[in-house]
Every structure is written in structure tokens, then in C-alpha cells.
Nucleic acid binder design. Structure first.
Length: 500
RNA sequence: GGGCCUCUAGCUCAAUGGCAGAGCUGCGGACUUUUAAUCCGUAGGUUCAGGGUUCGAGUCCCUGGGGGCCCA
């Protein structure tokens, strides 16, 4: 605690910030505390609003209360001052300070020392103003937290950069920003509760991993000093959750962060929340039904309906059975040419050239097919759609298709043109799994830096016997995008940006 | 990784190569019922950083940085 600011170059501060620091000093000099330990508070603003909702215009309740809030609006006139207080959840209530009630000295102090953005406590009678505004007519007021920075203008949108960099200001200024956070919290809670109702157990598996695996992506690398070893931030929890299933934890899920060392755009963030779940004796059909039920259940829990209203006012329907297409069926339809898993690379390359797709020479035929799919089809998958049956060389952790050679039992779930999640009939044969890892290692050697690494301990776990298994992953941020219609940077409270 | 746009007062934005401005905010004043009050007065700037062209650069050029959009 100090009277003198520890900020270097304090004299160089913008005028408005200097003045607010001066007001803080004046409060201290007058014996008041700009940051008191607590405040007198008998009711929340929400409680006052509820309790006096019926109070008639221009009447007094006779009830004395103490309330607190941040000053969002002020109107200082000669002998009667108005201020709009807002509390955490966004409820607002008017405070009125009249010369007759607080006296000349306290009214002058209010006008001189209180700025928009300050947090104050008001004690007085609950009344309704002449205009019918529910108010607390102050007998006394106290500063509860002096703001040293001015809030942005309330009537203009903040720039996107400021909203994201200074999310705390966004949360103060924009109730919709708080709503997004609340919605996210409610969705995650709903998912957890639904899992528990179905007998799933939540586990936490390593974020720091000696070998990154479970997905195709570039990892963040870090280092343990104590163990003198390189570590990776996980790109997926998959290989550890499967170890759990080997151990007899037959129905497990995890909701936690994954990290991928890649750029960010409207649907990608380097750090993102992932749900993964595994169900012994399940397969890609059972987990497709499961993920659909979970998403629809969370929509019902949070919005009361599987038809949700997006930020732009349009309705989006998550209800009913979701459309299912096969990967190669979708490609064939988009190209107007019959494409199968056996279609040779040269033919696919010809089609890729026709649509002017830039082809990376390290891609296999299967990868090329998936790239064509992403180029031609993905944007059009607006309604929730399962895309099924992927080529084996891009699906190293997935069981071979029960009837279609060269394909695996994998689906990707798309909505609004964005991949929401993926689900498998999991590969549980350790001998085949080892072959798949070896194939991935060959791809890595060819220059594919997203190829998976061989995880010997994971194979050892598999060799003890993994039951038939269905699993899926669902991006939490992207689920929120689907439910709200917002971009990923709005669904994440503090998305990564370059340091200022 | 490539292309395009953008960065000016606390915030949102103006300014043909020629005095750096407005609204809100702030400060001082008037006003006992305001809802972005009104009125009078007033303050506030390293125009992202560095370099260049020019009599003169917020503006044109180069390099670097931040942000956004599109493409890969």
C-alpha cells in the first residue's frame, strides 16, 4: 500500500488518468478509503428490482437499503444527481443523490470525486422517480473502488482488438460478452451432467506429454528441467484415455485444453477446449448417437429447445436425426465424377488440378481426397452432418471398416461449415496399431510434420488388451460457435494474441 | 507463407502534400427528476516505430511492428 504511484513516468499519463489518480489521493487525504475492505450491502440490485417491481411511479417504499455497483452513467445537476449502477450480472439500478438528503458537503464530494466506472455503495430509501425509474434515494454514499482508467464510450462499439485484448472492459461494457461466458459455462455443465447420468467418469490425463499423439498437428514443445527432458503440450488426450480403458475404466470422458502450434483464424485457436469420451463395447455408430444426444441435450438445457437463435437473429436447428453422408459419396457428388477409395492418385490429382487445388507433393491419395472434400464440400455443410468412412492412411488410430476395404470406421461431424468433432470405432489390435505408427513414421520422414509419432508405452498398454471401443472428440469452442453463431474468438474468454 | 485493408486525443472517428480536428469522455460553471440531458467556458496529441522524398509529410516512398479480411 502506497500513496505514491509506483508506475514510472506517472507525469506522462494521459490527463484523464492523472486526474483519477489525484481523486484517489484526495479521498485518502480526506480520510476516506478509495479501496475499502468491504461495503455495506443489504440487497443485490437484482433483489431490489425483484422486490420492488410493482412500486408505483413517483412513490416512496419507506424501506432503507444499501446497494453497491459500478457507475455506468451519471447526470450531475445542481442539487439532484443521478447515477446508474450496474452489478456483476448486468442488472442496473438508479441511484439519486439530493442535496436535501446527503447534505452540501457529501453532494459536492460526489460530484467532484465520482467518475463513470467507479464502484460505489449507496444507502437510502427505495423509491420510484417521477419518471417511474426504480431508484435508491441516497442518505449516504461511499467509494468502494476508484477506477483509475476511463471506460470507453458506451454508445460506440469497441474495436475488436480492444474487446479481445481487454476482455475485462468488454465484459463491463457489453452484456452480450457476459452472456457468451454464461452460455459456455452452462453448456459445459450440461455436458458433464449428461455424462454422469450415463455412467461416464471424468478423468484428467497429462497435458505435458513426452510423446505427442492422438491427432495430426504440430505441437508446442517445452522442457522439464528436473527430468532434463523435452516435453510437448498435448495435441489430444486420446492415447491416455485409451490407456484408461485398458485399465478397466470402461466409460471415461475428459474436458480440457489441447494445444496446437498453428495459426488462428475465425475457427482455429492455438489453445482450445476439447471433449473426448470413450465407451467400451461401443463403435462409431453408438458414439455418433451419443454425441448427437449430448449436443441436443445441452441445447435443450441451455436454450430450452434444439432450435437455437444465433447472434445475428437467425434460427439454427440442431434437432432430429442428423444427416449422414460418406466421404467419397460427398466428393463424388461435388465433382460429378465417381470417386472411391481405390481411385488412383493420378486421377485424383487430375480432379484437384481441375478445381485449382494446390497439391502438396507429400500427400497420399487419401489425403488428396480429403483436401478435395475440404475444398468443395465443407463450406456447404451447414446443417449438422456426419461424414463417414475415411481412408485408412489418414486415420491411423481407427479400426478398418467392417465391410469396405481401405476405409476406416471414422466420422467427422460438421456444422455451419466447420468441423465440430470426430468419432471412431477405435483400433484395438496392437499389432495393426504398430504397423500404422510405422506408416506414420514413414510419412514424417517424407516431410509430413503433422504425422503421428510412435508411442511405445501406448502400444504396451494395448498389448495388455483393449476392449472393443467407440470414442469421439468434440470441440467445445466450436460447439459454442454452433450454438451461438459467434466466431471462435468470442467463445474463448482470453484468446491468444500477439503480446502488445 | 502470399495478397489486400488498417493503425490519429481516454473511446469512436475526420483531416486535397499546406495551422491536427469533431462527437462522447475529462476539467470549471449553471440547473432538484435526468435516461447518449441541455447550456456556457476549457483542457487534452511522440498521428504505431524508424528512415527517406519534399520548402513543407498524419497524408507519398522504404523497412519493421500490431490488428483485420481473403488466399494457401
Amino acid at each position: 500500500m502506497s500513496d505514491s504511484p509506483a508506475v514510472p513516468g506517472i507525469e506522462d499519463l494521459p490527463e484523464q488518468m492523472r486526474i483519477r489518480r489525484d481523486k484517489r489521493a484526495e479521498l485518502l487525504a480526506s480520510g476516506a478509503e478509495p479501496y475499502p475492505l468491504g461495503a455495506k450491502r443489504t440487497h443485490s440490485l437484482t433483489e431490489i428490482r425483484a422486490k420492488y417491481a410493482e412500486l408505483a411511479t413517483d412513490t416512496a417504499s419507506g424501506d432503507k437499503v444499501s446497494v453497491t455497483g459500478r457507475v455506468m452513467f451519471m447526470r450531475n445537476t445542481g442539487k439532484l444527481c443521478f447515477a446508474t449502477l450496474r452489478e456483476g450480472e448486468g442488472t442496473e439500478l438508479q441511484a439519486m443523490l439530493s442535496l436535501a438528503n446527503v447534505g452540501e458537503e457529501r453532494l459536492a464530494a460526489w460530484k467532484h470525486l465520482v467518475d463513470i466506472g467507479d464502484q460505489v455503495a449507496i444507502t437510502g430509501e427505495v423509491i420510484s422517480s417521477r419518471r417511474g425509474e426504480l431508484s435508491v434515494l441516497a442518505d449516504e454514499w461511499e467509494m468502494t473502488s476508484k477506477a483509475l482508467r476511463p471506460l470507453p464510450v458506451a454508445h460506440k462499439d469497441m474495436s475488436e482488438e480492444m474487446r479481445v485484448r481487454q476482455r475485462y472492459v468488454d465484459l463491463i461494457m457489453r452484456p452480450a460478452a457476459q452472456n457468451t461466458v454464461r452460455t459456455r459455462s452452462a453448456v459445459v455443465r450440461s455436458l458433464r451432467e449428461q455424462f454422469h447420468e450415463r455412467g461416464f467418469m471424468e478423468v484428467e490425463t497429462p497435458m505435458l506429454q513426452p510423446i505427442h499423439g492422438g491427432a495430426s498437428a504440430r505441437p508446442f514443445a517445452t522442457r522439464s528441467n528436473a527430468f532434463d527432458t523435452d516435453l510437448f503440450l498435448r495435441i489430444a488426450p486420446e492415447l491416455y484415455l485409451k490407456r484408461c480403458v485398458v485399465g478397466g475404466l470402461d466409460k471415461v470422458f475428459e474436458i480440457n485444453r489441447n494445444f496446437r502450434n498453428e495459426g488462428s483464424d475465425s475457427s482455429h485457436a492455438p489453445e482450445f477446449a476439447m471433449l473426448e469420451a470413450y465407451e467400451a463395447y461401443g463403435n462409431y455408430d453408438t458414439v455418433a448417437a451419443l454425441v448427437r444426444d449430448l449436443v441436443q441435450g445441452s441445447a435443450r438445457d441451455v436454450y430450452g429447445s434444439t432450435v437455437v437463435t444465433h447472434a445475428d437473429g437467425t434460427e439454427y436447428d440442431l434437432g432430429g436425426q442428423w444427416r449422414e453422408v460418406t466421404l467419397f459419396g460427398a466428393i463424388s457428388e461435388a465433382l460429378g465424377e465417381e470417386v472411391m477409395v481405390r481411385t488412383p492418385y493420378e486421377t485424383l490429382k487430375k480432379y484437384a488440378d481441375r478445381i485449382e487445388l494446390a497439391v502438396d507433393p507429400v500427400w497420399s491419395a487419401g489425403q488428396l481426397a480429403e483436401e478435395i472434400f475440404e475444398e468443395l464440400v465443407v463450406d456447404n455443410l451447414r446443417a449438422p452432418t456426419f461424414v463417414r468412412d475415411y481412408p485408412v492412411e489418414t486415420s491411423p488410430l481407427v479400426r478398418d471398416h467392417r465391410t469396405e476395404p481401405g476405409l476406416t470406421e471414422k466420422w467427422d461431424l460438421y456444422a455451419l461449415g466447420v468441423e465440430l468433432g470426430t468419432g471412431y470405432s477405435e483400433l484395438v489390435d496392437p499389432v495393426v496399431q504398430r504397423e500404422r505408427f510405422v506408416q506414420q513414421a514413414r510419412q514424417a520422414a517424407r516431410g509430413d510434420d503433422e504425422a503421428m509419432r510412435l508411442d511405445e508405452d501406448f502400444l504396451r498398454a494395448m498389448e495388455y488388451g483393449m476392449p472393443p471401443l467407440g470414442g469421439f472428440g468434440l470441440g467445445i469452442d466450436r460447439l459454442l460457435m454452433t450454438l451461438t453463431g459467434l466466431g471462435i474468438r468470442e467463445t474463448i474468454l482470453f484468446p491468444m494474441l500477439r503480446p502488445e
